[in-house]
């Protein structure tokens, strides 16, 4: 004989219980006011733009600012890539058994991480003029004469120091047993590093690396101080000619859009690459 385990009578579907109304406490009032404040600022920028729409003004400065945005993007991209290459060398120096070499790596990283980027840019841009004869002799004066190349050069040196620290920390946080296991298998050192250490280290380095990219985008605004016409430089020029404060707000929105887009892309990338580590 079979017993039916299915209930004979089903309960009628019920509506969800009524949610308790949230009271208007201090937190809710404060939060709503705060959110409204931001919404109001956004609206004010938009309304101001539409009402005060000045075709000549936009036609004159919008393309320039977009061009500046492009300059910002490529300065940051190039210095990040070159900095990554340079940082490999510095990381190797930092992790070297030779104390003198490790000391040089340490001094480099400490100097570039311990001083303001603006001071470094000044040091390279104005300081290189003092060695003009030397640079002319070795045929590099065309490079150091241009503000934009000086900015690129300084950003590269600077990000190399930060990236070296990121890679060093990541490599050191891969457990020693991984290396030892590779040894036990009789793998050559090169293979151990490339196939075992580096992939794990890069996964760890991913997050701080994303932060470094964002810091570089923001830091690159400093180039405008030595007359580079990146987004910030174009914005300052537009302001000094028009005295229209709006341009600064546009620039802020552009930087914000750039940083937020990158952050989202990086988050997606990280989720994808560390998928196997999630529990």
């Amino acid at each position: 004989m079979r017993t039916a385990y299915v209930s004979e009578r089903m309960l009628k579907p019920q509506p969800a219980p009524l949610q308790k109304a949230r009271g208007w406490g201090a937190a809710r009032i404060g939060g709503t006011l705060g959110t409204a404040f931001w919404a109001l600022i956004g609206l004010a920028i938009l309304v101001n733009f539409i009402i005060g729409y000045d075709h000549d003004f936009v036609a004159r400065y919008a393309p320039r600012m977009l061009g500046g945005l492009w300059t910002t993007v490529w300065i940051v991209a190039v210095s990040l890539v070159l900095g990554a290459l340079l940082s490999m060398l510095i990381t190797a120096a930092r992790l070297s058994q030779n104390r003198a070499v490790a000391g040089i790596g340490f001094a480099y990283v400490t100097f570039f991480r311990g001083t303001p980027l603006l001071a470094q840019v000044f040091l390279v841009y104005y300081g290189s003029g003092e060695f003009r004869a030397f640079f002319e002799a070795i045929g590099l004066w065309w490079f150091f004469r241009e503000a934009i190349y000086c900015a690129l050069f300084t950003f590269t040196l600077n990000t190399a120091a930060y990236q070296a620290e990121i890679y060093r920390g990541a490599i050191q946080s891969v457990p020693d047993t991984q290396r030892e296991a590779g040894w036990a298998l009789g793998l050559p050192r090169k293979v151990i590093f490339r196939q075992i250490i580096a992939p794990q280290a890069m996964t760890i380095a991913l997050r701080p690396l994303g932060n470094e990219i964002i810091i570089m985008i923001k830091g690159s605004a400093i180039a405008s101080v030595i007359t580079v016409f990146d987004l910030m430089g174009e914005t300052r020029l537009a302001f000094s000619r028009s005295f229209d404060f709006q341009v600064y707000l546009w620039a802020a929105l552009m930087y914000l859009a750039l940083v937020e887009t990158l952050r989202r892309i990086w988050d997606a990338l990280e989720t994808r690459l560390t998928h196997h580590l999630e529990r």
């Binding site: 809710r28 939060g31 705060g34 605004a221 405008s224 914000l256």
Partner: peptide
């Protein structure tokens, strides 16, 4: 309180995303 969280998150998004130099000028 969700409204409070939203306001605070917008605050950090703005000031972490805009270059310090630009914030200073603004």
């Amino acid at each position: 309180e969700p409204a409070l969280r939203r306001g605070a998150n917008i605050y950090t998004t703005i000031f972490r995303g805009v270059p310090e130099l630009l914030t200073l000028f603004i």
